[in-house]
Design a protein around this nucleic acid. Structure first.
Lengths: 126, 126, 126, 126
DNA sequence: GTGGTCTAGACCACT
DNA sequence: GTGGTCTAGACCACA
C-alpha cells in the first residue's frame, strides 16, 4: 500500500510531480520497489494519492527520461534493470560533490567548527 | 563592487529576489556589509545585476521585514545594528535543526556511513 | 527461425503489430518468405517474440487486408501468389513519391547540397 | 504572424506538442527565429493556433530541455545563442548517419539502383 | 486493463 | 505581461 509510505503530505514549495518522482526514486533506492517490478498504475496511484492522473503521469515520465523506468506498451511501467545501482552511483556522486560540500561551506560560514559538527553527527547516529 | 561577487548567474529554481536576499544576508554574515553601512541603491544594483528594480525592491523589503535592514527616507537602506549577531543565531539555529539533519539523513539513505562522512569533513577542512 | 532475424527489440514509437507487419513485408520482399509458403503460426510466433497472440493476429490481419496473405481455415496463413510483385510495385511507388522527396527536402533544409548527397550515395554503395 | 507559417494543419499521427516543437526547430534552422529573439508567448500562440496553452507549453519545454531555448522568468522564452549552429550540427549528423542510410537501404531493398536514384535527385533539384 | 493526449478553466509566482 | 501547475473529464491506441 503506497499511502502508508507517502506519510508526509505535499510540500507546496515543489510541484507534486517532482515530489512524486523523488519519492519513487527513494523507494527504488530503499529497495521497496525492486528492479523489474511494476510501478503502481497511473490511475491507481492517482486515486490513492488523491491527485490527477496527469500529474502522476508527469512524474513517471521523468523517470522514463532518466532511464530508471521503462514503459511496456499496454502493460505499465517497470523499474529497469540496474536502476538501483545507477541511482546509488549518481545520487552518491551528486551528494559528495555538491550537497555535502555546500553544507560544510555553510557550516563554516556560520562559524560552526569541526568539533561541533562532529558532535552533531555522532548525536544523530544514536 | 557587487558585480564582482555575484559571479554565479541566476539560479532559476528560486525567485531572483530570494536569491538576492540570501546573497545580501551572506554578505552581512561575512562582514562585507558592516552594520550601519548603506546597501547599494535599488536603482544602481538593478543596473549592475541587469534585473528589474522592482525585483531588487522586493529583496530589500524581505530584509526590512526581517528587521535586518532599515529604510531611512531619502537616504537609502542601512544594515541595522545587531544584524550580524541576529543572523548568526537564527541561521545557525536553522542550519542545525533542519539543514544538517536533512543532509545526514540523506547520507544514511545513500549508504554513506559515519566513517566516510567524517573523512570527507576532514578532507574539506584542509 | 524468426527470432534470429528479429534482433532489434521493439521500437516503442510504433505499435508492435505495425512493426511486425512491416517486418513480415520485408521478409517477403527479401524472398525469405516465398509465395505460397506458410507464415509461422500466431501462437508460435507469439511465444518466440514474447508478445501477446492478439498482437500477432492484428499484424497478420493487416496483411490479409492488404491481400498479401490468405487465411486457409484449419491450415494457417499463406503468402499469396503475386504478393512479392505487388509489394515491389506499391512500396516502390510509396518510396519514390513520398519517402525519397521528403528525405531530399530534409537534406536541402539542412544545407546539404546535391554534390555532398551524391558522394554519400556513392560511398554507401561500395 | 505565425499562422502564415503554420500552413500545414495538424498531422494527427503525432502529438501536437511534438509537431510544434519540430516546427519551431525548423524555424530556427531557417533563420526565421533569430538567436536571442523571443518566441511567441505561450498564450498568444495558443490563441493563434487554436490549441490549449498547456500544449504549447509542452512544446516549449522540450526546447528548453534541449538547451535550444531559455526561459527568462516573467519575460518569456528566447532562442539561445548558438542554437542554430547546434541544430545544424546535430540534425545534419542525425540525417547523415541514420536517416539517409536508412533511405538508401530501403531503395536497395526495393531494387532501385543508383542510376534511378541519381535521376530522381536531379529531377528534384530543378 | 495500460499509458498518452488534449481541452477548458483556474490559480499561482515572477518581472 | 510572462510561464508553471493542477484539476476534471474526455477520447484514443495498445496489449
Amino acid at each position: 500500500m503506497m499511502a502508508a509510505v507517502m506519510t508526509e503530505r505535499w510540500d507546496d514549495t515543489q510541484p507534486i510531480y517532482q515530489q512524486l518522482r523523488d519519492h519513487t526514486v527513494n523507494r527504488i533506492l530503499a529497495g521497496e520497489l525492486a528492479e523489474g517490478e511494476a510501478l503502481p498504475s497511473v490511475r491507481q496511484l492517482a486515486v490513492e494519492l488523491q491527485i490527477n492522473p496527469i500529474t502522476v503521469s508527469r512524474a513517471y515520465q521523468l523517470l522514463v527520461d532518466e532511464l530508471l523506468v521503462e514503459k511496456r506498451r499496454g502493460l505499465g511501467m517497470f523499474v529497469m534493470t540496474g536502476a538501483r545501482e545507477k541511482l546509488l552511483n549518481s545520487e552518491r556522486e551528486q551528494f559528495l560533490r555538491h550537497e555535502l560540500p555546500k553544507t560544510l561551506e555553510r557550516a563554516r560560514q556560520l562559524g560552526i567548527d569541526n568539533a561541533a559538527l562532529l558532535q552533531h553527527i555522532k548525536d544523530s547516529s544514536e
